[in-house]
Design a protein around this nucleic acid. Structure first.
Length: 242
DNA sequence: GCGACAG
DNA sequence: ATCTTGTCGC
């Protein structure tokens, strides 16, 4: 997986990069694309920050798609590459995420991201951006509606309603009830996957909890890794893996 | 200009 | 994202 050499520094550069990458997104299902990784494996990625020390820790956790058992975990540490600007989240998270994915010995067929894919002001959210950069199949599962509209899904697990972009009226994803009596999650296409398959994948990853097992493991891992760094007062170079 | 705004 | 206590319920 490619490591970003000339990562955008300014908002203008980031916007231009999104315009360049946006036509490269493949919003199509598995049947039409050649598998890049092992289809039996699915990974989750997440990132934790320490703004005070300018530190970022990313985690990538690979699960067995059938049993949801953890197959492998990896982390990567670095300096924060970009400020948080709504719509430009990918530039903040992806550098560390790429390092964490590179640290894996397994090659997952699919990667689940914390955030959005096509559901994005310019149709290039974190999940789609990561997919285009790596060629991997990706989808986004977000916890809040961001700038999109939706009606509350039915009360049962699996119930869903369209997520729409008020600016264009387009359907950009689904609000999905992954657990009865709990707030929905917001699923969108990342890369090389269709919305139906993205929703099915999300449901397969949420047998017990609101959030996908992939996300839960990655979130827990990057937080623990960051806490461990802080506790040991370790010095961090430009980037460290594992 | 004001408010909203993935993580 | 992160800062933070107790509390209700399975």
């Amino acid at each position: 997986m490619p490591i970003p050499a000339d990562w955008p520094t300014t908002e203008a550069e980031a916007l231009a990069e999104q315009e360049r990458l946006r036509p490269l997104v493949e919003p199509t299902g598995a049947a039409s694309s050649v598998p890049v990784g092992d289809e039996r494996l699915i990974a989750g990625v997440d990132v934790a920050y320490d703004d005070e020390r300018d530190l970022v820790v990313a985690a990538a956790v690979v699960l067995d798609r059938a049993t949801l058992a953890v197959v492998e975990e990896a982390t990567a540490t670095g300096r924060i590459a970009f400020p948080y600007i709504p719509g430009l989240l990918a530039f903040r998270e992806i550098p560390a995420v790429l390092d964490a994915l590179d640290a894996l010995t397994h090659r997952p067929g699919t990667v689940v991201c914390d955030g959005y894919g096509l559901a994005h002001p310019r149709r290039l959210g974190l999940a789609s951006h990561l997919g285009v950069l790596t060629g991997l199949r990706t989808l986004g599962v977000a916890k809040t509606p961001f700038t999109f509209d939706h009606l509350p899904p039915g009360p049962d697990r699996g119930d869903r309603t369209p997520l729409t972009d008020p600016a264009t009226g387009e359907e950009v994803g689904s609000a999905v009830r992954t657990r009865a009596g709990v707030k929905p999650v917001f699923v969108s296409v990342g890369h090389r996957i269709g919305l139906t398959e993205a929703v099915e994948t999300t449901l397969a990853l949420t047998p017990h909890y609101r959030l996908p097992e992939t996300t839960r493991h990655a979130d827990s891992l990057c937080r623990r890794a960051l806490a461990a760094l802080t506790a040991s007062g370790a010095t961090v170079a430009t980037s460290d893996v594992n």
